[in-house]
Nucleic acid binder design. Structure first.
Length: 422
RNA sequence: CGGGCUGUAGCGCAGUGGUAGCGCGCAUCGUUCGGGACGAUGAGGUCGUGGGUUCAAAUCCCGCCAGCCCGACCA
């Protein structure tokens, strides 16, 4: 992708009222644009990151047997009256009247949709277990949207729902998803703690995945001795219930949440299946949420420095940022174009700053702001040789920069591919 | 929903009663070119919105809308 063709641009100043780091950096770099409080457009670079995050989640959900579907966001009132949550959810749910006085609402969660859906196909223990998930925008009428992508009124969510013939089977699957969640966050460079929390409107208890950061809005009691962490909402005293250690409250961002719904929704929708003995059983359900857009904001909160963002390899919008530094020099220009072409042909995802009459300083500043893991510099220094200069955004040394055979033609693409495989 | 602050050019801001400014960005030309270069010229605004006061309102008063922060809330 040539930077001269990119839809968005970086800006030098962001509104001073945007105080959260993720909003500031993502807006400044042209990754997102705010339409209204808690509602954002994802621009090409931001969209690519968002999609990569979703793809990591997809891979891990598919790996535990989840099947991707896509449900409507526009819900009829009738499904919600079954569980009584139409009236309970007036605060959080956007509700309105459509044509013919029909009452409808926008989906803020999908138990009321997926349960009757599954009921159409599941009648016997032989049809179980099943897990379906979707990645879709959720709508929540938050009293106060804030902190950029961290708390929005429209935001992306992966929500998976699982169906089981027994509580035991639910337990097993729940544990598998829990492990899958750990893998997801690890792949994206986030250290997420497993935290016990209340079940809110869904069940008595749940597990949250929390990333510790000062900019978080949750408070987690962290036990450094035995690792039993609990959300403040269920904590009665500072001491760990397991080992008795005095725990400290730390701010955190909730990036995932999983619940055992048990028979709460299957009972409401009269969703049963016969077991091996021919006896009808309430279906046991679990639900598993994770917010890609919130994760994007969290990654920026955690991984940045004074100059800008630093994307982890798994979710970077492009693999390398190629900078043509002295475009008035025809040799430099030709060489940069060649490197771009060669890398692209070798399957490297290249973002190419081909802007002319833009000073090197501005290119460096923009490149650091955008934060791709690798920067390749083509300037007068190396114009007459076939060598290129490679820098890592995080400042760590690259073991391949010294390789003698690392030229624009040979070795470079290979080294980049290798870098991304680690 | 309570408290505080804010709304003026694409973005950031100044302008407290006399008819609209600065910086960035943008356009054209020239110079510059390894950590956000410089000069010249130019385009761009019903000052959030509705009403009121006044000879005169971006500026004063009232209502409304929108945004940010703190709190409450947060499946």
């Amino acid at each position: 992708m040539k930077q001269t063709h990119l839809f968005s641009k970086t800006v030098k100043d962001v509104p001073k009222e945007e105080t959260s780091i993720n909003a500031q950096l993502l807006i400044k770099a042209g990754f997102i644009d705010k339409l209204q409080a808690g509602v954002y457009s994802f621009l090409p670079l931001g969209h690519r990151v968002h999609e990569r995050i979703k793809n990591v989640i997809r891979e891990e959900m598919n790996a535990v047997g989840g099947q991707e579907i896509y449900m409507p966001a526009l819900h009829p009132k009738k499904n919600w009256t079954v569980t009584g949550r139409w009236d309970e959810a007036t605060e959080v749910m956007f509700q309105f009247v459509g044509r013919g006085d029909k009452e409808m609402g926008l989906g803020w969660t999908h138990e009321e949709i997926v349960t009757p859906l599954a009921k159409k196909f599941v009648h016997s223990y032989k049809d179980l277990p099943r897990a379906v998930y979707q990645i879709q925008d959720k709508f929540r009428n938050e009293p106060r949207a804030k902190s950029g992508l961290l708390r929005g009124r429209e935001f992306s969510m992966k929500d998976m729902y699982s169906f089981h013939i027994s509580a035991k089977d639910l337990e097993n699957f729940y544990d598998e998803v829990l492990e899958a969640y750990h893998r997801i966050f690890k792949r994206m460079g986030l250290e997420a703690l497993l935290v016990e929390a209340s079940g809110g409107a869904f069940s008595k208890y749940s597990h949250e995945f929390q990333v510790l950061t000062e900019n978080g809005e949750d408070l987690v009691y962290v036990c450094k001795d035995c690792g039993r962490h609990q959300n403040k909402e269920i904590v009665e005293d500072d001491n760990c219930p397991d080992c008795g250690t005095k725990r400290s409250a730390k701010k955190a961002i909730e990036v995932g949440n999983i619940f055992k719904l048990k028979n709460r929704f299957s009972e409401a929708f009269k969703f049963k299946a016969v077991d091996k003995n021919g006896q009808e059983q309430d279906i046991q359900m679990g639900c598993y949420g994770i917010g890609p857009s919130r994760i994007m904001g969290t990654i920026v909160e955690i991984m940045h420095d004074d100059n800008g963002m630093i994307w982890p390899k798994e979710v970077t919008p492009y693999q390398v940022h190629l900078l043509a530094l002295a475009t008035e020099d025809e040799q430099v220009k030709d060489k940069a174009n060649r490197v771009y072409k060669n890398l692209k042909e070798a399957g490297v995802e290249v973002f190419f700053d081909d802007r002319e009459k833009v000073s090197p300083g501005e290119k460096f500043a923009d490149s650091d702001l955008i934060g791709l893991p690798l920067q390749i510099l083509v300037g007068k220094k190396t114009a007459t040789s076939s060598q290129v200069e490679v820098k890592s955004r995080d400042g760590k040394n690259l073991d391949f920069t010294d390789a003698d055979n690392l030229t624009e033609e040979e070795g470079l693409a290979e080294a980049i591919h290798k870098y991304y495989q680690n």
